[in-house]
């Protein structure tokens, strides 16, 4: 039975693995995930006086970890903060995907059919490929993508967290998706 008063010395054994897996599912780097768990425990210790027994200790620690993960993305995005004009981060630009003269998809980048897409969702391999593709995104795009589609923050919350204008935000989301699609196709999605 969970005691009503938290016992910090027991947190690593009691909640460490679960928090670590959650952190690792978000940041993919084992050292960073470990660091986030440690920061979570230290912040929880600092805020022990604010812990209310009606929330479970586990839930409380997860709330703190989630905040740490968002802070991690914010730092990641700020390291590579760029303006709208220079948002390509050295990655493919709009011109690689769309013909400048008419805005249509270029022949090389036009989306191919993902006939195997439904089955792919069940595959462990897809998860691994998607993670690798996410890791290859420029840091700011990776942070925005994760906050929107994994943490499920709203566009408004993300703009606030990362100090982005909404125009900038939409461009980043659009480019992240374009690059992920291309990366997934490069790794076999759509080749039946």
């Amino acid at each position: 039975m969970t005691p009503s008063t938290p016992v910090p010395a027991q947190w690593p054994d009691r909640y460490g693995n679960e928090l670590y897996r959650f952190a690792l599912s978000r940041v993919s780097d084992a050292d960073v995930a470990e660091e986030l768990v440690q920061e979570t425990f230290l912040s929880a210790l600092d805020g022990l006086a604010t812990f209310r027994a009606e929330a479970s200790e586990r839930t409380w620690l997860f709330v703190i970890l989630r905040r740490k993960i968002i802070d991690h993305y914010r730092r990641q995005a700020r390291v590579s903060h760029v303006g709208l004009d220079e948002i390509s981060d050295g990655g493919p630009s709009e011109a690689d995907y769309f013909a400048p003269e008419n805005g249509h998809w270029t022949a090389q980048q036009a989306p191919v059919s993902w006939l195997n897409a439904d089955a792919a969702l069940e595959q462990q391999e897809l998860h691994e490929i998607l993670q690798r593709c996410q890791d290859r995104l420029p840091p700011q795009q990776a942070a925005v993508f994760a906050l929107r589609f994994v943490e499920e923050l709203s566009a408004e919350e993300i703009c606030q967290e990362l100090g982005l204008s909404s125009a900038n935000y939409w461009v980043i989301v659009h480019r992240a998706k374009l690059q992920l699609r291309r990366c997934l196709e490069k790794h076999g999605l759509g080749k039946n």
Partner: peptide, 25 residues
Amino acid sequence: AKQTVLIAEWARASASARASSGMVL
């Protein structure tokens, strides 16, 4: 348009699968 929805769904499913993996500290 369909692919962009799938990518978002996969990102969530993928994080969820990793969170329930057997990794331990």
